[in-house]
């Protein structure tokens, strides 16, 4: 059961979007999210939507996969929309019982919904087209300048990639411990939420002990293979910008500029 969980949601295929340098995708997604909150007019949202649509088409990821990302936050989205709809003061539009929908509330909640949907599609698209490994590499490279401020950038990204490597192993281990305890009469499935959580405690203790033991072994194995932090380390798969990546930066900048112009001009 636990084995079916795939981490990250990388969708393996060969597309222009997949081949794009992960740094472009990371920075692109971040700036796209920021710009979503800069634009606030219909033409602005149309430009953002069109840009996103082109990206999705370039990624060759089926729409269903992308929409699956939306499903998980549907509740959050509804709550946000409802709160904005009913609780924004302004010119009343419809009024029933204790609730009033204002004109401002209506426009604001639509804006919010569009923003959130675009935001989630954009970040889902990034994780669908970038493997977790590439993502940690990109993070290390993008945060590189922070090294001067003594932020352990290399160490953080190493920790992230080791965590990713061990998640399936620990999952398997959890499964094994659960089965061993179920064989001796432990009950994980019945009872209310509190009982279920209580049943997890005897599961977590052996899992933690084994995780620490693994960490210890792994640290020794890494040392035995000459690991001594990021200094003097070379990369097997260094990130190198190619022509297409530079072009992508250009397109991204043009898009961002267009959005800012739309906002400033107040179209």
């Amino acid at each position: 059961m636990l084995k079916d969980v795939t981490l990250g949601q990388y969708y393996q295929t060969d597309s222009w979007m997949h081949r794009l340098d992960p740094r472009v995708k990371l920075l692109g997604t971040l700036s796209y999210i920021i710009i979503l909150f800069v634009v606030n007019s219909v033409p602005g949202y149309l430009v953002c939507g069109a840009f996103l649509l082109v990206c999705v088409l370039l990624s060759r990821v089926p729409f269903g996969y992308i929409l699956r990302g939306l499903k998980t936050i549907m509740v959050l989205l509804l709550i946000t929309v409802l709160f904005n709809l009913f609780l924004t003061p302004g010119e009343p539009l419809v009024s029933f019982w204790k609730f009033t929908i204002t004109k401002e509330g209506l426009t604001f909640s639509i804006k919010m919904a569009v923003r959130l949907i675009f935001l989630i599609i954009a970040s889902t698209l990034m994780t669908l087209t970038t493997s977790p490994n590439q993502l940690t590499d990109a993070l290390e490279s993008v945060l590189g300048p922070l090294k001067k401020l003594h932020v352990p950038v290399h160490e953080i990204s190493m920790m992230m990639s080791i965590a990713l490597r061990f998640i399936p192993i620990l999952m398997e281990e959890t499964d094994k411990i659960m089965k061993a305890q179920m064989a001796r009469g432990a009950d994980f499935d019945s009872g209310n939420l509190i009982n279920k959580i209580k049943a997890m405690v005897p599961l977590l203790v052996p899992l933690f002990i084994s995780a620490f033991r693994r960490a210890n072994d792994l640290a020794m194995a890494m040392e035995a293979r000459c690991y001594h932090g990021g200094e003097g380390r070379t990369k097997m798969k260094p990130l190198v910008y190619r022509k297409g990546d530079v072009g992508a930066y250009g397109v991204l900048c043009a898009f961002l500029a267009a959005c800012i112009v739309i906002r400033v001009m107040g179209v």
Binding site: P132, N133, S161, I162, L164, R165, I169, R214, D217, L218, M220, A221, M222, A224, R225
Partner: peptide, 11 residues
Amino acid sequence: FQNPDNQIIGQ
């Protein structure tokens, strides 16, 4: 080392 899972670092 003994345990193959605990010495493989790459994904």
